[in-house]
Design a protein around this nucleic acid. Structure first.
Lengths: 237, 237
DNA sequence: CATAATTTGTCCGTATGTATC
DNA sequence: GGATACATACGGACAAATTAT
């Protein structure tokens, strides 16, 4: 897609400028952007060019546009998380947001996490363990790793269900996209017990790396799921 | 998305017309479309409107556009299948197309498949079983169900590795998108043996329904995967 | 409640750039 | 070089939705 860094179309340069303004907090989550015309005048380009830049950003889920109202910086509200980042659904019934119960929060170096998060091996990492439930039924055992440098003090907080909103509102870190790698594995004793299964049961293991607006990896997450009555949904198009 | 069927923007009406021309074989896979200007003149709209319609179709992987050359109906070549429809990758090394070995082909009614494919319960269904390998290592046991009415004679053919290309070239059925539901399950004797595992081993079960251009379900596929050294890749954005 | 102003959505036309043949 | 086709950029006009007056 971008094999010629020597030349970037104007609308893409505009996009980069707008993304940077969001990334650096000039425009914050939920806030309204200036109108297309104002941005165009500000940057000295045509309204159509701004429009194309915003169209791209809409496709990337970075902004939402509403006719007659304006363009808004996308928020990590529950609805968005649910559709964009939470792919585990009950076999029957509605898509729901899972309840979370935190088991532990630790702090210290962790070499594997450091490698994935692109940190020095000795850098401190926040490690969270929690169990998530759908319909009062525990079904996900989750290990989360964060660079402490980006989320200082997060380990002292009461952790909400929707972590990505906390990253955004509390630390100015916006998760823009993620990559998940799935495997089927045999349940360990501890996870099995927490989810009401038996050791050796087949569990779905989701290995997620999440990236911020500037494309840096900022969260590593391992989710072990008991998929008796839930499934992972993937749309191919 | 389409909550007001009373009004469709012009560019979307144009899109629908163009999709129908592909679906009915007026323009076939791999063929070049008329230029934007010619289509615009033909339909009596501006070139910009045709452009927006084609932009949408590009995003849906229905056509590919190449500057200086033209717009082409997307083909189900190996590269496209590999990226759009085959999400299972080796843990280390390159993305590769799996080899396939057909175990059996049967023909007859099958109530569960009929339900998913939206057929009458008595309608005949083609059922294919095959094993797929990555790097000489069998890792997928696959059950495939097709409506015989759409694919008459397919059960008598030599089945190629790339089935979607056969659907397209041989039967004019273009797979446009698919939905996959993933679970972790315990391996059955037969599947385990075929893939070199043991009964009870955790296998990844992929339940796929694939839809044609007109949004009708035309293929149901269950893939059981031994994910020892491969994983399912899902990009969230 | 009606009207005006604002903002995005759609549609059109034109000119120029870039890639391909 | 020339012809063709898509890509980019600009500008204008009207429609539809929302908000302020």
């Amino acid at each position: 897609m971008d094999d010629t860094p020597g030349y970037r179309p104007l609308y893409r340069q505009v996009r980069d400028i707008l993304v940077k303004r969001i990334a650096t907090g000039v425009w914050q989550a939920g806030q309204i952007l200036p109108s297309e015309g104002d941005i165009a005048a500000d940057l000295g380009v045509s309204q159509g060019t701004v429009r194309k830049a915003l169209d791209e950003m809409t496709a990337e889920n970075l902004v939402t546009r509403r006719q007659g109202r304006g363009t808004f910086v996308a928020r990590h509200d529950d609805a968005r998380i649910l559709f964009q980042f939470f792919k585990l659904l009950p076999d029957t019934g509605e898509r729901r947001f899972p309840e979370s119960r935190v088991l532990s929060v630790h702090l210290g170096p962790e070499s594997e996490a450091a490698r994935i998060l692109d940190l020095a091996e000795t850098e401190s990492v926040i490690r969270i363990e929690r169990v998530r439930s759908l319909d009062e039924q525990p079904c996900i055992f989750e290990h989360i790793y964060l660079p402490e440098s980006l989320f200082r003090g997060l380990d002292q907080r009461d952790l909400p269900n929707n972590l990505y909103q906390l990253y955004s509102v509390g630390y100015g870190v916006t998760i823009a996209r993620a990559t998940e790698r799935l495997k089927a594995v045999a349940a360990q004793k501890r996870e099995a017990k927490a989810l009401g299964g038996a050791p050796g049961d087949p569990f779905l293991r989701i290995d997620r790396t999440a990236y911020a607006l500037d494309s840096r990896p900022v969260e590593w997450r391992i989710s072990l799921c008991r998929t008796e009555s839930v499934h992972y949904l993937s749309d191919l198009r």
